[in-house]
């Protein structure tokens, strides 16, 4: 990639994306009366103190129930939303202190693929216009060749059959490939994929997953893959973070996490995934109800109100270091991992 004015530190050998204590709190809309009598504004703590580091060439999985803050974290990470606290470092440079030139470079190197293939393409843009836009914005030359190459990369071949199409002429899988082509035409170094296959048919899902996996490897990108389904995460991710109410509650190498989840929430998430095996009959859910709104969080472990293993010690808040394997790779924010393992 021909970068003329290199202002970010491309020789940095730490994690490509690193966040610490990241927070995104939304002010909760309260009634006007409440505001007039001077009630204090409450906050929805969508992301509440996340530490995470993603290396080049690595795909990090982010898994959790609906509403636990996955998309918000993804969007904050790529600068679509302003964090309300904590730090985001891209190639070691703090996002909030980047110069304009550096920021532009950041924009160019950090991209996102969205969930809904029916709403994430502008209905009025042809495939060609849609993929050309990032090149125009960043004033990059050889646009035609790059568009062509991006389409081939996304396996939309032969490209000339797709270039003039509009989104409503494409199937869901093809649309998602167009999104991939657009995200990759700038040859980014970091990409967030937010449930890119959840709305696709099973027979196309596999091909999109395989494609993403291949591209992350080939282009040596860092990636964050968001899903609520561990079976999809398993296909895609080297490491996985489990998120609950704005916090990462478990992190570890994906296979290890799937073979032996530690946090009670991760256990429940894994148990809930249906398996294509008729010997399995649907079992009693480990979790009842839905997560509370992340407004007034309980004292201590935030999973306590739903946790079947909660005990006295859980009134103190566990950090991710509450449980850690000897090699330090697998960690969980739970005081009672060993006890539960024995049960």
């Amino acid at each position: 990639m021909a970068i003329t004015e290199q202002s970010l530190n491309w020789d940095y050998d730490g994690p490509i994306m690193e966040v610490a204590g990241l927070e995104k709190h939304f002010p909760q809309s309260t009634g006007i009366v409440h505001q007039l009598i001077g009630g204090d504004t409450k906050h929805v703590k969508a992301v509440d103190g996340v530490d995470m580091a993603i290396e080049s060439g690595e795909t990090m999985g982010l898994v959790g129930e609906s509403g636990c803050g996955k998309s918000t974290l993804g969007e904050v990470l790529i600068g679509l939303q302003e964090p309300t606290g904590g730090s985001i470092k891209f190639l070691g440079t703090e996002l909030s202190s980047m110069s304009d030139a550096q920021h532009k470079e950041f924009r160019r190197n950090v991209q996102m693929i969205f969930q809904d293939p029916y709403e994430s393409l502008n209905p009025r843009f042809s495939v060609e216009q849609w993929i050309r836009e990032p090149l125009e914005v960043h004033d990059i030359d050889n646009q035609d060749e790059r568009i062509y190459e991006a389409l081939e990369r996304a396996e939309l071949t032969p490209p000339e059959n797709y270039i003039g199409e509009h989104p409503h002429e494409l199937s869901g899988g093809e649309r998602q490939r167009v999104s991939i082509a657009r995200a990759l035409v700038l040859e980014p170094k970091f990409i967030v994929a937010d449930e890119p296959v959840s709305m696709l048919d099973v027979s196309v899902r596999a091909s999109i997953l395989n494609l993403l996996r291949k591209l992350v490897d080939e282009l040596d990108m860092g990636a964050l893959y968001i899903s609520h389904d561990l079976s999809l995460i398993r296909q895609m991710c080297d490491r996985t973070s489990v998120m609950y109410l704005g916090k990462v509650v478990e992190r570890g190498p994906t296979e290890r996490l799937i073979k032996g989840p530690k946090h009670p929430y991760a256990r429940a998430l894994l148990d809930a995934v249906p398996v294509p095996n008729p010997e399995h009959n649907i079992s009693e859910p480990q979790l009842e109800g839905e997560p509370p709104d992340p407004v007034d969080l309980p004292e201590g472990c935030n999973f306590r109100p739903r946790c079947p293993f909660a005990a006295e010690e859980c009134f103190e808040e566990p950090g991710l270091d509450a449980y850690e394997t000897a090699d330090g790779e697998h960690a969980a924010a739970c005081w009672r991992v060993e006890t539960v393992d024995e049960m």
């Binding site: 027979s203 899902r205 596999a206 294509p276």
Partner: peptide, 23 residues
């Protein structure tokens, strides 16, 4: 068989998924 092989699972050993090209 194609559908079954295209389906990911959290059970057993991890395996590569096949896809069914075409429409």
């Amino acid at each position: 068989l194609g559908l079954q092989n295209a389906f990911p699972s959290v059970e057993g050993e991890k395996r590569d998924l096949t896809s069914i090209p075409g429409s």
